[in-house]
Amino acid sequence: MATEYNPELIQKLADKLYSQANSSIVLGTLIGFVAGGFFGLSASHESPIGVVIGVVLGSIVGYLIGQSRAFSLRVQAQMALCQRQIELNTRR
């Protein structure tokens, strides 16, 4: 039995990649927030200023990492959609 082409699967893949891209920004920021808070807490010996600085810097770094990952996922989704559209355009 041969596997047949199914353009809906490619669309589902692209939708899932976009969903993961959106989640990666939130997750990256959250992880950076928590990690920055712990780092600020340990580095500043429980000084509130150190914790705030750690949280802010950690959140920024986490956001930037999440943005980078999201960009890669969106590019993958666009490549899949492009291939799907090429197939649909050239179908006889």
Rank of each mutant, 00 (worst) to 15 (best):
L41Y: 10
M1F: 08
R91I: 12
Q83R: 12
T3V: 14
S72L: 10
N22L: 03
F38P: 05
G28Y: 00
I86R: 14
Q20T: 05
S44I: 04
G54Q: 03
G32R: 00
I86C: 11
T29W: 03
F39W: 13
L41F: 10
K12M: 14
R84T: 08
L88N: 06
A21S: 10
K16F: 10
L88P: 03
D15I: 07
R84D: 09
E4V: 14
R91C: 11
E4L: 15
G32W: 00
Q67F: 13
T90K: 12
S59W: 00
G54E: 03
D15S: 10
V61E: 04
D15H: 07
N22F: 04
S23G: 10
A35V: 00
F39R: 07
P7N: 03
G32D: 02
A14W: 03
A43P: 13
A14Y: 04
T90R: 12
S59F: 02
S47L: 08
S44H: 04
Q85P: 08
L64F: 11
R69L: 06
Q83H: 12
K16L: 09
A43W: 15
F33E: 02
L30S: 09
I53S: 03
L57V: 09
E8I: 13
S42E: 11
E87P: 05
A43Y: 14
G50M: 07
G54W: 00
R84E: 10
S59K: 02
Q78A: 14
V51K: 03
M79G: 14
I49P: 02
T29S: 08
I65S: 00
G36S: 04
C82Y: 15
Y63C: 08
L57M: 13
V75W: 15
G40R: 01
S24D: 06
E46W: 08
S24G: 05
Y18L: 10
A43R: 14
V56T: 06
F33R: 00
L41P: 02
A35C: 06
G40K: 01
L41W: 07
I53N: 00
Y5H: 11
Q83G: 13
G58S: 06
S23L: 09
L13D: 07
Y18N: 13
V75G: 11
